[in-house]
């Protein structure tokens, strides 16, 4: 830990990967929107047979 300059700024991506709660939010949001919400909307939008 002490071998690298300890005031080097931590890059953004590393900060992201070090934030489990942020990742939790993203990991739930992504499939909720892309898979479930989009899918459910298509099911609801199915037309009724004439």
């Amino acid at each position: 830990m002490s071998d690298t300059g300890s005031n080097e700024k931590i890059p953004f991506m590393q900060q992201l990967l070090d934030s489990p709660f942020l990742l939790l939010a993203i990991g739930i949001l992504s499939p909720m929107v892309l898979y479930i919400l989009w899918g459910v909307m298509e099911v609801i939008a199915t037309p009724i047979a004439q």
Binding site: M1, D3, T4, S6, E8, K9, I10, P11, M13, Q14
Partner: peptide, 8 residues
């Protein structure tokens, strides 16, 4: 990880 900054 042993480095504080491993991303680089």
């Amino acid at each position: 990880p042993e480095q504080r900054v491993w991303w680089n």
